[in-house]
Amino acid sequence: MTKRAYNFNAGPAALPLEVLERAQAEFVDFHNTGMSIMEMSHRGKVYEGVHNEAITRLLSLLGNPEGYKVLFLQGGASTQFAMIPMNFLSEGKVAAYVHSGSWADKAIKEAKLLGETTVLASSAADKFMTIPNLSDVVIPENAAYVHITSNETIEGTQYQTYPETGNVPLIVDMSSDILSRKLDITQFDLIYAGAQKNLGPSGVTIVIAKEELLNESPKGVPSMLRYDTHLSNNSLYNTPPAFSVYMVNEVLKWVEEQGGIEGVEANNRKKASLIYDTIDNSDGFYRGPVDLASRSIMNITFRLTSEELENKFIKESEQEGFVGLKGHRSVGGLRASIYNAVPYDSCKALTDFMVRFQKDNG
């Protein structure tokens, strides 16, 4: 390998180079067992040690909130879209959702298949370029839960503050910004996140939730789709994605080495400011469509004056080693996903390219 790509993929996304190198060194022979961790039994002490270490490390980074449990599940966040109403939306209750963009929309559609669902607020009128205003939202008395999507990867929006839901459980899809900034985890009753953006490779989905919420799933829900099945078996009811869990543990070690979530957040905000400043100071050559108060520090979306120019930007950036800058097919434009593992130097290289491109094409 002569040079690492400037990886701005939206997911699966960049992993820390240090983590990849550690995994490479341990891949064939894990801890002198004569086996890769992918070859060993998930019932054995060696794998269970890694499994439990990852759980302990994640809770520690989150401040060891009392009464919370971690589950390692499969099927991505998309399976959680269905599991949540299957487990929590009982007869006579309504599932309350905030519609903030593409991923919230997918969650809402799944819930509607399983029970009564209402949309508390939506930013559709703003083409999802803002986070919905929740100041005047009235939560139904019979709400089973309130569901939000903390960061919309496609549109490039992110919650800056979270709603107060009182006694109604607050559930959040945090797939694309988990561990990116300091949060009070006790604000949430359940957090779920696909690992493939900030936590590790694809294959494992993390659920962090209050134990009381996970304890009793409806008896008619199939075993593999019941939270209490996985809680009572420490996420070892069936064969877990062992290598993905191992990689999550290694990424969590890396987060600790960066100074914890506080250190990671400081770097993320520095990276985001660098790129947003380049957009905002371009005299209109680059345009950030997202409302300033809703901008994501994980997924930076921007446009040029024409699709032709955007296509030229993509082509020339790829020639210089940049990957993943094309916007999602549903919205077009350009997008730089700058998750935790994307180095500041990659963001600096991107802004240098953006300045050169403007000079040549402005």
Score class of each variant (00 low, 15 high):
residue 343 P to G: 09
residue 45 K to I: 12
residue 130 T to E: 08
residue 23 A to P: 05
residue 225 L to H: 09
residue 172 V to R: 03
residue 24 Q to N: 12
residue 4 R to P: 11
residue 305 T to I: 15
residue 196 Q to D: 12
residue 260 G to H: 09
residue 312 K to E: 06
residue 47 Y to N: 13
residue 210 K to W: 12
residue 323 V to Y: 13
residue 33 T to M: 07
residue 211 E to H: 05
residue 147 H to C: 06
residue 49 G to A: 13
residue 205 T to V: 06
residue 311 N to R: 07
residue 192 Y to S: 01
residue 206 I to R: 06
residue 22 R to F: 08
residue 140 P to L: 05
residue 117 T to M: 10
residue 24 Q to M: 13
residue 67 G to I: 08
residue 220 G to Q: 08
residue 325 L to W: 11
residue 199 L to W: 04
residue 295 R to I: 02
residue 294 S to L: 01
residue 33 T to E: 03
residue 300 I to W: 09
residue 164 E to F: 11
residue 261 I to M: 00
residue 314 I to H: 02
residue 269 R to T: 09
residue 44 G to V: 10
residue 279 I to M: 13
residue 124 A to P: 05
residue 296 S to R: 06
residue 358 Q to D: 00
residue 6 Y to G: 08
residue 189 D to R: 03
residue 52 N to S: 05
residue 158 Q to E: 15
residue 161 T to W: 00
residue 95 A to K: 06
residue 177 D to R: 02
residue 4 R to Q: 12
residue 319 Q to A: 15
residue 63 G to N: 01
residue 130 T to N: 04
residue 15 L to D: 11
residue 317 S to L: 08
residue 348 K to T: 04
residue 106 K to M: 04
residue 60 S to V: 14
residue 311 N to A: 04
residue 360 D to E: 15
residue 23 A to H: 08
residue 182 K to R: 08
residue 68 Y to A: 08
residue 306 S to F: 10
residue 167 N to R: 10
residue 89 L to S: 12
residue 248 V to D: 09
residue 208 I to D: 06
residue 282 S to R: 05
residue 322 F to C: 11
residue 173 D to Y: 10
residue 116 E to S: 04
residue 93 K to D: 01
residue 172 V to W: 02
residue 200 G to A: 03
residue 152 E to W: 09
residue 60 S to M: 15
residue 126 D to F: 10
residue 358 Q to Y: 13
residue 200 G to L: 02
residue 108 I to E: 00
residue 328 H to S: 06
residue 79 T to V: 07
residue 243 F to H: 07
residue 7 N to M: 14
residue 205 T to D: 07
residue 6 Y to T: 12
residue 243 F to I: 13
residue 68 Y to V: 12
residue 222 P to L: 13
residue 4 R to Y: 15
residue 113 L to N: 12
residue 314 I to L: 10
residue 36 S to M: 08
residue 123 S to M: 03
residue 286 Y to Q: 08
residue 326 K to F: 10
residue 335 R to E: 04
residue 296 S to M: 05
residue 148 I to D: 01
residue 108 I to Q: 01
residue 327 G to D: 03
residue 355 V to E: 05
residue 319 Q to K: 15
residue 51 H to P: 03
residue 272 A to D: 01
residue 312 K to A: 07
residue 344 Y to N: 14
residue 358 Q to G: 01
residue 41 S to A: 14
residue 219 K to E: 15
residue 85 P to T: 02
residue 142 N to M: 07
residue 25 A to W: 03
residue 98 V to T: 00
residue 99 H to G: 00
residue 16 P to Y: 03
residue 232 S to W: 09
residue 347 C to G: 03
residue 222 P to Y: 14
residue 105 D to G: 10
residue 298 M to C: 11
residue 115 G to W: 02
residue 52 N to V: 02
residue 49 G to M: 06
residue 20 L to W: 06
residue 21 E to V: 12
residue 65 P to V: 11
residue 193 A to P: 04
residue 34 G to H: 01
residue 95 A to T: 06
residue 309 L to W: 14
residue 207 V to T: 15
residue 351 T to S: 02
residue 46 V to A: 14
residue 114 L to Q: 12
residue 345 D to G: 02
residue 98 V to A: 01
residue 66 E to F: 10
residue 266 A to Y: 02
residue 74 Q to V: 09
residue 240 P to S: 11
residue 163 P to Y: 11
residue 104 A to M: 00
residue 86 M to I: 11
residue 84 I to P: 13
residue 316 E to C: 04
residue 237 Y to Q: 11
